[in-house]
């Protein structure tokens, strides 16, 4: 009977594959448990993750073997205990790696069981009756309150996470100051805050390097210096008098800035240093 023989062969091959997969899984589980029990003090999280990844990979392979089209449906196989014996069976002992010494009426119901354990069965029954006893309204209420609790908890966790994240950044000191960026860009773009040698009295371009105008304007430009909290002022002491005097009349400065706005409309902008 070639058909039967072929089926038998297939069954055996599948069983072999299954056994080797399960053995692999068992070995990995064993070594992971060993690690957890004996090396917990120097176990790193990445190595735990590695072990998990290995286990999940092996479980996947096992599933694939079970779902393979050439694997016969194991549930269609029936196992019947033919002989029960209270005597010690060395062969069985070896095959089960010392876990099952005898094939007796005591152990067979456990090992050949296809239903859950009696205690589990009992618990399940209890739950089913409990569920049946409460009314639909009460059940709905309980579901709602559970959902509410879950979403509250979720919110709390994610909030905590966010805070931890921003808290992790907070200790890092600031590496840049947006106000400084603006001041520097304005300086290279149109000389804001820089030494301006044009006399403030005439609207036309003046003579560069007029000493009188230069001094006054240097003081005015000092006004625009970017002051940073806690940073020592870079003001020249000699300018402070000018600064105070002009701080009271910002209009003067603004007027001058307004005149300067004319060249700006052509807006030749910030400059990169060039190397030839």
């Amino acid at each position: 009977m070639p058909t039967e023989q072929r089926e038998e062969k297939q069954l055996e091959a599948s069983l072999d594959a299954l056994l080797s997969q399960v053995a692999d899984l068992k070995n990995s589980l064993g070594s992971f448990i060993y690690k957890l029990e004996n090396e917990y003090d120097r176990l790193t999280w990445p190595s735990v993750l590695d072990s998990f990844a290995l286990l999940s990979g092996q479980l996947n392979t096992l599933n694939k073997v079970l779902k393979h089209e050439k694997t016969p449906l194991f549930r269609n196989q029936v196992i019947i205990p033919l002989v029960l014996s209270p005597d010690r069976d060395e062969d069985l002992m070896r095959q089960t790696e010392g876990r099952v010494p005898v094939f007796s009426h005591e152990v067979v119901p456990d090992h050949l069981r296809t239903k859950p354990d009696p205690e589990v069965e009992e618990q399940e029954k209890q739950l089913t009756t409990d569920a049946a006893r409460i009314g639909a309204d009460a059940a709905q209420k309980q579901i709602q309150s559970l959902n509410k609790m879950c979403s509250n908890l979720l919110e709390k966790i994610s909030k905590e996470e966010r805070e931890a994240e921003s808290g992790g950044l907070r200790p890092n000191k600031q590496t840049f100051n947006p106000a400084d960026t603006n001041a520097l860009v304005a300086a290279v773009a149109f000389g804001k805050g820089l030494s301006n040698w044009r006399p403030s009295g005439s609207s036309g371009p003046g003579q560069p390097g007029q000493p009188g105008a230069g001094t006054i304007l240097a003081g005015a430009s000092g006004l625009q210096q970017v002051q940073m909290a806690g940073a020592p002022s870079q003001q020249q002491p000699m300018l402070s008098g000018v600064q105070i005097a002009q701080a009271g009349q910002p209009d003067i400065f603004r007027e001058r800035a307004g005149r300067r706005a004319i060249p700006l409309s052509l807006a030749v902008q910030g400059q990169m240093p060039q190397r030839f």
Binding site: F176, A183, L184, V185, Q225, V226, M228, Q234
Partner: peptide
């Protein structure tokens, strides 16, 4: 004198 305490 430096314009600010930052580099552009």
């Amino acid at each position: 004198e430096a314009l600010s305490l930052s580099y552009l």
